[in-house]
Each structure stands twice: as C-alpha cells, then as structure tokens.
Design a protein around this nucleic acid. Sequence first.
DNA 1: ATCAAATATGCAACTAAGTTGCAAATGTTA
DNA 2: TAACATTTGCAACTTAGTTGCATATTTGAT
Lengths: 140, 140
Amino acid sequence: MNENLDTHIYKMLTEAGLYHTENRVLILKILFNARKPISQEAISSKSVKHFDKVTIYRTLESLIKAGIVHKAFINKRASHYELAHRCTTKQCHPHFTCTKCGSTHCLVDLSMPMAAANHKGFTITHQQVHLEGLCPACSQ
Amino acid sequence: MNENLDTHIYKMLTEAGLYHTENRVLILKILFNARKPISQEAISSKSVKHFDKVTIYRTLESLIKAGIVHKAFINKRASHYELAHRCTTKQCHPHFTCTKCGSTHCLVDLSMPMAAANHKGFTITHQQVHLEGLCPACSQ
DNA sequence: ATCAAATATGCAACTAAGTTGCAAATGTTA
DNA sequence: TAACATTTGCAACTTAGTTGCATATTTGAT
Ligand SMILES: [Mn+2]
Ligand SMILES: [Mn+2]
Ligand SMILES: [Zn+2]
Ligand SMILES: [Zn+2]
C-alpha cells in the first residue's frame, strides 16, 4: 500500500510536470492520510520533518496550480487544503462543519444538484456547498 | 425613504435589545445600501465618519449575535458581512463570485434544495452554497 | 433634569495567516 | 559531471482580527 502510494504520488508529480522533491511527496502523503481539509499549521504539526511555513504554502500553491490540491473553504482565517481527487470540475463534495466541536468533514457521498449553468446573465461554472450542524459524535 | 430606513433600523435595534447608537445606525445603513457582503475595510471606506476598526468589528459582532447581520463567507482572508434579512434560518441565498473581476453577488432568487436534515449521523441545520463563474458584465 | 448602571467606544498593543525577496540547496537533463 | 531550472529556508513584512483598559454614551429609574 505504501509502495502503491509512493508510485501514485510519483506519477501524479510527473504528469503535472513538477519536480519530484522530498517535501512535495511528504506533504502529499499527509494530505492523503488526512482525508479532510487541513490547514498549513495542521500539515506542519503532522509532519515529523520540520518544514518552513513558506515552503508549505509554496508547495501547496504548486499543487493547486497543477490541480492536485484545492482550497476547500476558509475556516477561522486559515484556509484548509485537501486533495482534489474526490471532486469534479463543476462541484466539490459538500463540506460539513460541526458547530459544537468545530471539526470538519467531507460528505463525499452526499450528492447535491448543480445550480443551472446560467442564471440572469451569470455563467455558473463551479458550485461549493457548505453545511453546518452537529457531527455524529456531537449529535448524541 | 430615508425616514423609513431610520425608523426601520430604530425598530430592529429596539427589538434586538441593543442600544440605539450613532455608529450602529451608520453601519447598518452602509450594509443596507451595499446590497451584498462587504468587508470591515469596505464599511470603513464607505463611511464619511471615521470609525476605529475595532468599533466596526464589535458593532458587527453585536449585530450578528442579534441575528441582524451574518458572515456570508470569507474571501481573501477578510470576512464579508451583509444583512441577514434575505436568508432563512436553514439556508442563505447562494453567493456568487466572478472569477474574472472578483466581484461578489447575492443570487437571492436562485433557490437551491436543502440537503436532508440527517446524513449518516450528521445533523444538518444550515446550508451555504457558493457559486463561481462569470458575472453578467464579464460574460460578454 | 439627574444619577447610576449597563453598554459602547477609541487607542495601543498584540496574535497569527499569508506574502515577498533573496541567497543557498536540490532536482533534471544532457 | 556540468548547466540550468526549480525549490527551499530565512528574515522581514503586511494585514485581519483580538484583547485590555480607560473614557464616553445610552438607558431607565427617580
Ligand atoms: Mn473537497
Ligand atoms: Mn446572504
Ligand atoms: Zn462535533
Ligand atoms: Zn465579473
């Protein structure tokens, strides 16, 4: 599985025309394992190796430009990043924020209908749905 | 019309149990006139009177707590504020951001179906839809 | 009108997310 | 291995938002 992940990441970077650097691979692995949007600070603290925060921001920037990563939404002034592999070009899965514990979750199996592509002169190309309420743990 | 707005604002503040202060009224008028989410910085620059930014943040905070104002979404690290009068408790109208000119719009007449109130243990109480694409001016 | 209590305001100082410039290090290709 | 392109770390900076505190304003009761 680790072998597969390394190979997968290697291929992704090659296809994107990005240098295959240690930092890029480590950050991608952290994002793969997180399975939800996380902040620069969270990436930093999940990492064994010390990263300069500028390096993390610039690495994320390059991955976003390549379409591998995207910003999910902004929570408490810090953007949260996740892999883009479970989103279409027109719509990301809905994101959920618990109003009690503050945790965020990707509701990848909750499908939401897209708004019409045109609405009173607006050309709508992308839709993002943000949900709030209580997470399973806090619903009890 | 100005007479009506003053009266309306006065009533809103009274009903919310908030002091009827000059600053609160001025900021509410700016929000009424803006007709879209705007930042603290924008409120400040639209105002003839000089406001301390802390005053604006604390005024908005009190209005949010009273349910009169809410944060629409966060754009470029700065929250954008608008009146809550065109939103229900469960769902705000969709917000649109133009990818070309960066302008934001409230699509108050574009209705989006609510996600189910329950989904795999999540209790969903609020939904926010964010759309992207080209605004009428940029669509030409 | 006057006063006391509650609330709002302005100022200075602070925290923290994200950015920029630049020199040194690393990855790629030949 | 050499030349070139890209990435990295560091220091310094910008700016949204917060906090503490002393002063000013609003309100309701007298
Ligand atoms: Mn996503
Ligand atoms: Mn709104
Ligand atoms: Zn929770
Ligand atoms: Zn536009």
